[in-house]
Design a protein around this nucleic acid. Sequence first.
DNA 1: GCAAAAGTGTTCTCTATACACCCATGT
DNA 2: ACATGGGTGTATAGAGAACACTTTTGC
Lengths: 241, 241
Amino acid sequence: MHSLTEQNYIQQLSIDCVIFGYENQQLKVLISTLKFKGDFQVLPSGFIYQGEDVDEAARRILEDRTSIKDTYLEQFHVFGKADRSNRAFLDRLIELNPDLVILHQQQRQQYEWFTRRFVSIGYYALVDMAKVIPQKHEIDQSITWYDVRQLPILAMDHNEIVQKAIDTLRLTLDQRLSAFSLLPESFTMKDVQEVYEAIYDKPFARNNFQKKILDMNVLERLEKKFTGAANKAPYLYRYIK
Amino acid sequence: MHSLTEQNYIQQLSIDCVIFGYENQQLKVLISTLKFKGDFQVLPSGFIYQGEDVDEAARRILEDRTSIKDTYLEQFHVFGKADRSNRAFLDRLIELNPDLVILHQQQRQQYEWFTRRFVSIGYYALVDMAKVIPQKHEIDQSITWYDVRQLPILAMDHNEIVQKAIDTLRLTLDQRLSAFSLLPESFTMKDVQEVYEAIYDKPFARNNFQKKILDMNVLERLEKKFTGAANKAPYLYRYIK
DNA sequence: GCAAAAGTGTTCTCTATACACCCATGT
DNA sequence: ACATGGGTGTATAGAGAACACTTTTGC
């Protein structure tokens, strides 16, 4: 959810971003909790300025929340049901927050635009969580990472949007070589495997996995990583090209 | 292009339909020629009513032009460049058609909405050409099928939209089993192969192709088709499930 | 019988998976 | 030495491409 103030936006069109991160064998999604009573949780969203490409708008929304500029970002689906409206959501929000100034009766008509039916373009991003310090927006109480397997109930159809993003991610992960966007500059083969296991929610055979990834010819082998553990030190790799 | 009259539409959002058909070893696309001077050619397009799902709107636009109800139809991409506008297109149209009543200065402001920047959702459909009698709209001079390899220059970015539709079609043809939507009720294996060859613009090995298609387990073998030719009669097949 | 096109079978290759073994490391 | 986890090699099975052969049809 972006600002509730109408600006020079395209009407009734929004962008919802499913921002994926990875940590501790878990695939995570960045979720914002609004600063109203009632625990409203939503995907980072925003609108499109008149003079702005839709792709640019998505990148702006991503950058606003993560400060990440260059990373994997792609549209994956349009959500266009006629009943997609913030109306029910806002009604409930007002019910639980009767003191809310900006939504008082007299000022309410200026937010009328926001309660109309919205078509939303879904984008998903893959980011290196270590590089992200999630940025709150004016209407956020907090913005935090959630394990995709333990998502809270999100407002509107945002849970469906996340699911569709995961489906798309699974279908295109190898083609787009996008998995490495979730990892830091250098990583071990085990890290890569655990990213895959988190995304597909299933185990892979260690040796065959290594072969498959190396056969992509996009990794450069660096020095070994000595962890202090009583076993052979794994190589570090770096994504190239 | 739909009517130029503003109705109860979502603003600045449109749908462009790439309607594929197949005939004589050629993959075809339905193109409308507008009834103005200057040979303006465009994809069948339209807008979304306030109370209408985006998918419903796409289906309505498809049905309007083809009378086909149940066939393969799917969104494939959003075209959202900031400079996507009908403005240049309309300016040129007015320049070439100075006598155009509906665009006279005094009435022009009511079409102002149409010259703004538009975000367009691309849908592609696969239809059995034999079942389609292309339906002209009020602003169409004609609407006809064009071989995708010999498309005219279309207005705005419509050529790019067709190309992206073809790319998507090629990527998902087998997964979605959508090829059969281009064929009539019953067909020979050679027909199927020629559809594939038209779509991918390359030849396939006859025997391996047959095996591949039959292994999908979606075809029912019917009687033989005697053509009168001096060779073995091919079986007819029907798509099931 | 013969040409043309359809149907079917066989081989070869490549890839994916399963199984096995060896290597480095710290206690 | 040995337990632990990492790296690599080999065998097997399945999918896909290339090649070959047989069958049906009308002249």
